[in-house]
């Protein structure tokens, strides 16, 4: 028995090559990009995934550590910064930093970009089954599609919304004409009532499997991230489905999630992490992500490498007017979190 134990112990020992731990969104980097980086640095990249910023923050608060790089959204960068979990960047080791578009620098969460390197962005919007919406005569570019019973009556059981407190509230708040960052309890309650009125028509709260549900045709309208909709659209086409998946930014405005690479202070490989950041700032590598998942790209040098059907998609690269209607979410303090927690529980229960 001891011999067996020794064998297993030996097997479980970490590999020799340096390992970069990346805590990333699910499917948020191309395998090819990873492979190229591994070849260049003679190291290994290990990824863990999350599907919600709150989940990532909670796991870190719950003691997850050892991640070199994380890819949080703006408000989560703010939370990580305020809780002193981030390591400052050494810009001298990021020669390609100048590739970034000016409008994505100096975000509210990190003025001067002392800690964060913009990586990619997505818009939280509505994905839909084009043929079904057309047949039902429904508009695609408004939150009314998921909140208004007069539309939902035709979509009963065919709608999913994100299983995320902040995102769903933001959609409801925007639809009601408020800011996505509004923290007035009265407005929150109005948003709750809007959600509760619509909820009987929804199939499920869903964090990520709506990609598959849209592709298969079970779900006709999904509240989700632009890159997931891109994936659903590609999957449906590849599977030869008799319908296409479209996506559009609702005209009432939506949430823009700018995800940035940051260095977590429990990471053991800051040098390697800087090399990875700079590698991802090279236009070709950065473009690979947009080509793979259809995410928006804050990198000017990447645009030349991005396939035209993505570069020209207004839901991925919105024009000026639409850009103005997009908002980044800010972090809530713990009292606001508890108020929202109660409202969310109520939403889940009723």
């Amino acid at each position: 028995m001891l011999r067996l134990l020794a064998l297993v112990l030996a097997l479980a020992l970490p590999a020799q090559a340096a390992t970069l731990y990346l805590y990333n969104w699910n499917n948020y980097i191309s395998d090819r990009t990873i492979a190229r980086f591994e070849a260049r640095c003679a190291c290994r990249v290990v990824q863990d995934y999350y599907s919600d910023n709150e989940e990532m923050l909670a796991k870190l608060a719950a003691g997850a550590s050892g991640y070199d790089l994380i890819v949080p959204t703006g408000n989560a960068v703010e939370a990580l910064l305020r809780s002193k979990q981030l390591r400052p960047l050494d810009k001298a080791r990021l020669p390609h930093f100048g590739n970034l578009k000016a409008e994505f620098l100096n975000g509210f969460f990190d003025p001067g970009n002392r800690y964060s390197v913009p990586y990619a962005y997505t818009v939280t919007l509505l994905g839909y089954n084009m043929e079904k919406l057309q047949a039902l005569g429904l508009p695609a570019d408004t939150w009314a599609l998921v909140f208004e019973p007069r539309y939902l009556a035709k979509l009963k059981g065919r709608v999913t919304v994100l299983d995320s407190q902040r995102e769903l509230m933001a959609a409801a708040l925007r639809y009601l004409g408020h800011s996505a960052n509004d923290s007035d309890e009265k407005h929150w309650k109005a948003a709750r009532d809007l959600i509760l009125r619509a909820k009987p028509y929804w199939a499920a709260f869903n964090a990520s499997s709506y990609i598959k549900e849209l592709t298969v045709g079970n779900i006709w309208v999904a509240h989700g991230y632009s890159n997931d909709m891109f994936q659903a659209r590609a999957d449906a086409a590849a599977a030869g489905r008799p319908f296409r998946i479209g996506y559009a930014i609702p005209r009432e405005g939506a949430v823009l999630a700018l995800d940035s690479l940051v260095l977590h202070n429990t990471g053991r490989q800051p040098d390697l992490a800087h090399r990875f950041m700079d590698f991802m700032l090279e236009g070709e590598n950065s473009a690979e992500l947009s080509n793979l998942i259809g995410s928006g790209n804050p990198n000017r040098a990447a645009m030349a490498y991005i396939r035209p059907e993505i570069a020209d998609n207004p839901a991925v690269f919105p024009d000026g007017a639409n850009m103005g209607r997009l908002e980044m979410l800010r972090d809530l303090d713990r009292r606001q979190r508890r108020v929202l927690n109660r409202i969310w529980t109520e939403i889940k229960l009723r």
Binding site: E54, A58, A61, A62, K199, F205, N341, W344, R350
Partner: peptide
């Protein structure tokens, strides 16, 4: 959309809403 149980609520407090 209506199937939250006490286990989900507890899990959310630790791994979802801090």
């Amino acid at each position: 959309t209506r199937d939250m149980l006490i286990g989900n609520l507890i899990k959310d407090q630790f791994l979802g809403v801090r």
